[in-house]
Write a protein that binds this DNA or RNA. Structure first.
Length: 484
RNA sequence: GGCGACAUAGCCAAGUGGUAAGGCCGUGGAUUGCAAAUCCAUUAUCCCCCAGUUCGAAUCUGGGUGUCGCCUCCA
């Protein structure tokens, strides 16, 4: 089995091969920290984190870097609004980012470089571009000359002529930068300082970096001249990633990344979820209403490249689905003692029919939705076995087999980032009502049932239910119960 | 106008040449005093439309239609 991935650069699925054996260098374009993250950001962070997890599970050593853009007009605007500094705004939303991602169960990248911490690398890169003739200064700004880079447009499949035709009348007449540019699609590498804004010294005067250059500098600094995988939201393909390529490859003469992967957008009522349209829901708002794992399931049940429609109904459905998966994941914690096995081991099996089917699905361009089908099959079966155990007291399936299935389920769920707290099954300990008390009430109810005093029996049943005790009437007048 | 992606049941969604995974919702039966829970069974003769290639296509080719993204900051 080999992993194949859809490479935006070639617009086709390719067999995945690393530069260095068993080692993956991966970079993800992160966020500009001027506000709370919304569901769209969550999709990007979550999907690529799961990709990273999967690669690790496959045996790769993965180096995963994600940046924070902490120099930007939007951050400055926010700082003005709030009467604070750019740093204060950045720090606030970086902290919020980490909180949100922790709630969602998104793992940490190996490093989170920031633009403000990468100034030396950025300036060095701009200088090199200038020396090589790809950049030109203009009144304190420095621009990249896209016409000097023959391959410009190779990632997004655009030609400069097409861009020009399409953008007619739309590109920046009122943009003050436009007049400084030699060509409309040149972009800023460095911007001259404006009154009262943060600025750094440079050979071109005091100023700050443009947006695209930071990623080129960070990749080079942290991962090297060529990396294996560069990922990000599909809306960054052009111009951001196109410009990154132009910047990096003009300097190094080598490919910036062998694979470019892009995730699809979150759609709300037919339109992309975005700040500008105002049709977004922040991760915080979302998690007030839905469980983190339900959100995860909602995201992972659609192939990462496809657009994903956000509706409350879809999240509610995902919540139900998660309940099913969760019950399967709890199986061992619930019945393990009874069946004679304990906590799941950390040993990775990497074998077995179920694992193979999962791997086959996911190896095809990270088809997590296909992989989830395997998890649900296992979960459903374990739930059934668990119910038989509750109702009958025993099951025909060998406990070894059940232990193995559960182990597999835990392992596969772990790759996708699904986890349960075993304590969830023990919430009863705080219930207050003792087993003996329950038994007495059950007795009382059965007496009432015998006497056909159903009003009383139903009252007792409701009373127990209110305390989280579910009664199961079995044939023959036998009643068993469990704490839910 | 240019570039690209997608179109599968009530809803979500896999499946890239061999006769439609999985989830949610629902339905029928068993069981029950009634419920709940559970068990069993069941839910697309067909994959946007038309034409073609093939013994055979949801899957390949051509032509339509529709939806979305990018072309401007954007995950």
């Amino acid at each position: 089995m080999t992993l194949s991935v859809y490479n935006t650069l070639t617009r086709s699925k390719e067999t995945f091969q690393t530069l260095e054996k068993n080692k993956v260098r991966m970079y993800c374009c992160g966020i500009t920290v001027y506000d709370y993250c919304h569901l769209g950001h969550a999709r990007t962070c979550l999907v690529w984190d799961v990709v990273r997890r999967y690669l690790k599970w496959c045996g790769y050593e993965v180096q995963y870097i994600q940046n924070f853009t902490d120099i930007d007009d939007k951050i400055l605007n926010r700082a003005r609004q709030e009467g604070t500094s750019m740093e204060a705004v950045s720090e606030k939303f970086i902290a919020a980012y980490f909180e949100d991602m922790e709630h969602l169960g998104v793992g940490k990248a190996d490093a989170y470089p920031r633009a403000t911490h990468t100034l030396d690398g950025i300036k060095r890169l701009v200088s090199e571009l200038e020396q090589k003739g790809f950049a030109y200064p203009a009144e304190g700004d420095v621009y990249y000359s896209v016409q000097k880079f023959p391959e410009y447009g190779k990632l997004s499949g655009r030609k400069l002529e097409d861009l020009q035709a399409g953008a007619s009348g739309r590109v920046g007449v009122e943009d003050p930068e436009a007049s400084k540019k030699q060509y409309p699609f040149d972009f800023a590498l460095w911007k001259a300082a404006k009154e009262g804004e943060p600025a750094w010294e440079s050979p071109w005067g005091n100023g700050r970096p443009g947006w695209h250059i930071e990623c080129s500098a960070m990749v080079r600094e942290r991962l090297g001249e060529t990396i294996d995988i560069h990922v990000g939201g599909g809306d960054l393909t052009f111009p951001h990633h196109e410009n990154e390529i132009a910047q990096s490859e003009a300097v190094t003469g080598k490919p910036l990344s062998n694979y470019w992967l892009h995730n699809g957008m979150i759609i709300v009522e037919g339109k992309k979820m975005s700040k500008s349209l105002g049709n977004f829901i922040t991760i915080r708002e979302l998690l007030d209403k839905f469980e983190p794992m339900a959100v995860r399931l909602f995201i992972l049940q659609t192939q990462y490249r496809k657009p994903l429609d956000f509706t409350e109904e879809a999240l509610a459905t995902a919540t139900n689905s998660w309940e099913t998966l969760k019950e399967g994941l709890l199986f061992g914690y619930q019945y393990g003692k009874q069946l004679g096995f304990s906590i799941p081991s950390n040993a990775s099996s990497q074998s077995g029919e179920l694992i193979t089917r999962f791997k086959e699905a996911v190896d095809d361009d990270f088809n997590f939705a296909g992989g989830l089908a395997v998890l649900f099959e296992i979960a459903k079966n374990l739930i059934r076995e668990g119910n038989i155990l509750v109702h009958e007291g025993k099951t025909k399936t060998a406990s070894q087999e059940l232990a193995a299935q559960w182990q597999t389920l835990i392992e596969l769920a772990g790759i996708l980032g699904f986890a349960v707290q075993p304590e969830e099954t023990n919430s009863n300990s705080t219930g207050g009502i003792s087993d003996a008390q329950i038994e007495a009430l059950v007795q009382q109810r059965n007496e009432a049932r015998k006497n056909k005093n159903y009003a009383e029996s139903d009252r007792l049943r409701d009373e127990l239910q209110a305390q989280g005790i579910t009664l199961i009437d079995k044939p023959g007048g036998v009643t068993i119960w469990n704490r839910s």
